[in-house]
């Protein structure tokens, strides 16, 4: 049999142009990045060799005496996360309804709701914490506000997605029965979404525990305050203790949260 090469793959020039454009964009992006990033490797190496002995051995031998204090601050951190995410779980409900198109049947309103929520999401929690420390002073309250507002953005979006995926036939059936809006809400919609809302709220609490560990760095309460002082005093064995407590507590909360969420949904 004769050797016959397969026909060439049909390629559209449009695709080809697109691929070349993407390739050029990526090359430019990397050129820009690597030509303008300013790393003095000699200094980094010199720092590393002089710091290594001071940092690493200390870090892996935590200062156990600080244990009780660290744990107490970690508990405060959990409380900040708890109050913040609970508040967010509640505030996000009306916003979620506003952003869900099948709840308002108003394109403008739901788009507006979605914009607010994604606007809020664009702020990292610690940036919000800076704003609230400026506004209400350096207290755990600033931290709670930061967590509450930050989580509202994500929870509102997730709630809206849940609402948009519910079975509208139930709602229709109730409308046909002559139920009013409030009745439909409590008997037709809420029962459908409660498990998912709860599950997302718990998931967000899990994230918030991580997020609130660092808020204290800008004065918003919790274990972050200790991180700030440990860094300023170069007390790396304190830092080791803090790190250990964070790893253990976050792992435990992750497990607990996963377990509870599995049981809910």
């Amino acid at each position: 049999m004769s050797q016959q090469l397969p026909p060439k793959k049909p390629r559209s020039t449009k695709k080809l142009v697109r691929n070349i454009a993407i390739a050029i964009a990526i090359v430019i992006l990397y050129l820009w990045t690597f030509l303008s990033i300013n790393v003095d490797f000699a200094r980094v190496a010199e720092r590393f060799s002089s710091n290594y002995d001071r940092v690493v051995p200390q870090l892996i031998s935590p200062n156990w005496e600080r244990g009780p204090e660290v744990i107490e601050m970690m508990i405060e951190t959990i409380f900040i996360a708890y109050v913040g995410s609970l508040a967010a779980a509640i505030i996000a409900v009306p916003l979620g309804f506003l952003a869900a198109f099948n709840m308002t049947y108003n394109k403008m309103l739901s788009t507006f709701g979605k914009w607010i929520l994604s606007g809020v999401r664009a702020f990292p929690e610690i940036i919000l914490a800076i704003l609230f420390v400026v506004a209400v002073g350096p207290t755990p309250f600033a931290g709670i506000l930061a967590i509450a507002i930050g989580s509202t953005g994500m929870l509102g979006k997730l709630y809206a997605e849940v609402l948009e995926s519910i079975d509208m036939n139930v709602v229709e059936a109730m409308q046909a029965n002559g139920a009013n809006k409030v009745q439909i809400m409590f008997h037709g919609i809420i029962p459908q979404v409660i498990p998912e809302f709860l599950s997302y709220a718990i998931y967000r609490f899990e994230i918030d525990v991580r997020a609130s560990t660092i808020l204290g760095y800008v004065g918003a309460g919790g274990i972050g305050t200790m991180i700030f002082f440990a860094q300023s005093n170069r007390n790396w064995s304190d830092m080791g203790m803090i790190l250990l407590v964070i790893i253990i507590v976050v792992t435990l909360i992750d497990y607990a949260s996963t377990y509870i969420r599995k049981r809910i949904v």
Partner: peptide, 11 residues
């Protein structure tokens, strides 16, 4: 942030 504190401490 904690990772950054550690690596800034190192480098």
């Amino acid at each position: 942030v904690v990772l950054a504190v550690i690596f800034v401490g190192l480098f």
